[in-house]
Every structure is written in C-alpha cells, then in structure tokens.
Amino acid sequence: MNITRRHMLILLPAAAMAWESVLAGTPEDAPNYTMSEHWWSMLIDIPRCIGCGNCVRACQAENDVPDGFFRTWIERYHVDDWNMANPQVISPDGGKEGFPSVAEDDKGKYFFVPKLCNHCADSPCTQVCPVGATFITPDGVVLVDQKYCMGCAYCVQACPYGCRYIHPQKRVADKCTLCYHRITKGLTTACCEACPTGARQLADLKNPNDPIHAFLKTHSVQVLKPQMATGAKVFYNDLDGSVR
C-alpha cells in the first residue's frame, strides 16, 4: 500500500504524463472536446443517498464556495405517514457535516434529497438576465459570466429551486457550473467524484453509450417542480411526491 520513494520516482513521469492529459486544453481548442457533441445532465438516485455530506464538502473545496451559500446541498425529508403536504425538512449547513442520527422507533419515513442547479434547458434565470451574463452553453450547462454580471440578482429571484446566490465578495451571481472545468476535460464533477454510493452520476444525454439511457428505460424518474416547465436536466430516481 505504501509507496516508497523509489516507487514514486519510477511512477513520477507516468503520473506527470497522465496529469498533463487531464489538464489538456480548453473546450475550444482541445481536439477531444466538442461542445455540440454533449448535452450534460445529472442523475440522482435517492435510495442510494446516505446524507454523508461528501458532495457538499467536495463542491466547496473544488469551487471555492463562500460560507453560508451552496452550489449543492442536501435536504433531509421526514414525511409522517400520509401527511405529504407537511414534510419536515432540514438542511443543517447544507448537510455539509451530515445529519443528526434518527432513532429506529421514529415514525414516518426519512430520505435525503441532494439539490443542485438543474441546468434547465428553458431556464428562467437565463431568460431574465438583462445583459446576457448568464446563459446555457451549447453543451447544456447554465453558467455565469462573472466578468460581465452586474449583480442585479434578478436571476436569483427567477430560479424556482433556490440554486443561485450573490457571491458576497465578488458581488456577482454564482451557482453550480456542473464543474464545467472538469467535465470538459473528461472528468466527472467534484460532487460525483466524492459521492461514496454513486447516488449522483454525471450523464451526457447526447452520448448513446452513457449508462443513463439504460437507467431511464427501467426506472421512474422525476424532475423537481415539473409544473415550472423549466426543462430541468437533473433527474431524480424514486423521488417522493412531498419533495419541493
């Protein structure tokens, strides 16, 4: 298990080469990434989420998310028997440090719902941006141009899911980028990388070999707030009707 100094020296060039290939290029000039060939989305498998908070911590580490704001967070739902209209929901510090334990004899059902930007195909946030500082890329990721955003917060108001915030230091809109700097290099998002149970899976809807197609064929999936008709692209497997 331990790598000795000798091992490391042998491995070093190989590691460096692999790392170089990971860092290769930007989406524009990298020969291996063409925006029009992808349409990114995410699959969230509710029965697999254990509420450990790994995704929240990973997101904050990867994306320098300011304290008290969240690009992704986890909610814990507690639905008592038939009372679906009144779920008790908590998300202490976005679920970053996990959730308090629940005793076995507790009534009702519990489950965790990870949330993030839905990268909507018809997103209300990009619709209302007055200057074109937020947009959906040709590969289906909703991004914020922080050099152009004037910080009016209209997009924050327009998002039905509460996924946006104004960065307190940068004073511009901020949100999940679906780790655009990773997925364009062939990596998965930080949250998916750190999820220990595979409850979150990055998916490319334009890739016919992506396992999401097989999954969608055999499972009942749902998006959040479908009545908002936002074309949300984060798909939830086994989502309870009480989730908002």
Partner: peptide
C-alpha cells in the same frame, strides 16, 4: 466566458 470557466483550476 465559456473557455474562461473551463480553465478554472482543478482540486479533485
């Protein structure tokens, strides 16, 4: 802006 965002540093 797309390329600028894609160029952000990796941590994982």
């Amino acid at each position: 802006a797309i390329a600028e965002i894609a160029d952000r540093p990796l941590h994982f």
